[in-house]
């Protein structure tokens, strides 16, 4: 145990000394990691906000369950409560016949004159069902349809198939593109970082050779380099996060007007705590992995 502690202390001391005595090489590695992570972070920020926009559209997605004529108000309320308990349902609003008529009259497509000749309100009462975000897919809607279709008191279900499919497709494309681009960016960042650290390791190949000649194990040789990579990655990640926050704070107000026009009341957000932590710890992991990869490559 004492030997392990002594070796760990040596690794930390050596790593610190390595960083201190080669500030230029370490600086280049830190900047490279910061730039690579800034790109990944900017992309993550873009995807986060795009998903919010899609969620915003998703909130508009509602299923209308038209109720049978002559259903008593108590029965309508009971049906509303029952539908609210269906899995995947976020909320249910009861729209009475009078409310439906009032809405129709107010809507832009309404032709009030169409209703003038009728003696009684032809519009049925309905339940407007909102779905949980995860259920806003074609499959989610089909499942809801199955649940509601057989409920006594519901006469017809209505939702825009084309709209739902378009929404689901857009969501799928954005998520797949985000995943693919994220992977490519992550891989590019790993390669760039590994290459930068490889040069740093190469510059110290004599030191590695001497360590091996005096009987240092692979772990003893590798530990300080991996630790250095980890520290460089951590600092690079923090710098990337700082720059990203700076750009966000500086750019969002000037873009706000245009975005409001496009997105309504969707305000652009910064990465959540988990995202920030992932970026910084991802930087540390990138640095450590880059060092390890460089050492393995150096050995071969």
């Amino acid at each position: 145990m004492r030997r392990v502690a002594a070796s760990a202390r040596t690794a930390v001391r050596t790593a610190w000394s390595g960083l201190r005595t080669s500030p230029v090489t370490s600086g280049v590695a830190v900047i490279t990691i910061a730039v690579a992570l800034l790109l990944v972070g900017a992309f993550a920020l873009l995807v986060t906000n795009m998903e919010r926009i899609l969620d915003r559209f998703g909130e508009e997605l509602r299923v209308s369950a038209y109720l049978a004529p002559g259903l008593a108000p108590e029965a309508q309320e009971a049906l509303r409560a029952r539908v609210a308990d269906v899995p995947g349902v976020l909320s249910v609003a009861l729209v009475t016949r009078d409310e439906a008529l009032a809405r129709f009259r107010e809507s832009r497509v309404a032709r009030a004159a169409l209703l003038d000749g009728l003696e009684e309100n032809p519009l049925p009462a309905s339940l407007e069902v909102s779905l949980e975000p995860a259920e806003r897919t074609r499959e989610g809607l089909a499942a809801l349809n199955d649940e509601l279709a057989d409920l006594p008191g519901i006469e017809e279900l209505g939702y825009g198939h084309g709209w739902v499919e378009g929404y689901a497709r857009a969501l799928g494309v954005v998520r797949a593109a985000a995943l693919a681009l994220g992977l490519v960016l992550g891989l590019a960042a790993l390669l760039i970082v590994a290459n930068t650290i490889r040069l740093a390791v190469y510059a110290r190949r004599d030191e590695i050779e001497i360590l091996r000649l005096v009987g240092a194990s692979r772990a003893f040789v590798a530990a300080p380099f991996v630790l250095e990579g980890l520290i460089q990655g951590l600092v690079g990640g923090l710098i990337a996060l700082g720059l990203l926050a700076l750009f966000h704070v500086a750019l969002v107000p000037s873009l706000r007007g245009g975005m409001e026009l496009l997105l309504g009341d969707v305000t652009p957000v910064f990465l959540a705590a988990r995202g920030m932590l992932t970026l910084v710890l991802g930087g540390a992991a990138l640095g450590a992995l880059g060092s390890a990869a460089a050492l393995v490559q150096g050995e071969s």
Partner: peptide, 22 residues
């Protein structure tokens, strides 16, 4: 085969450190 970035003391210590001497 001395390590130029380490002090004289640290160069000698290296041989003991690799075996985990306290």
């Amino acid at each position: 085969k001395l390590l130029p970035r380490r002090t004289v003391e640290a160069n000698v210590a290296l041989a003991l450190e690799v075996v985990g001497t306290p």
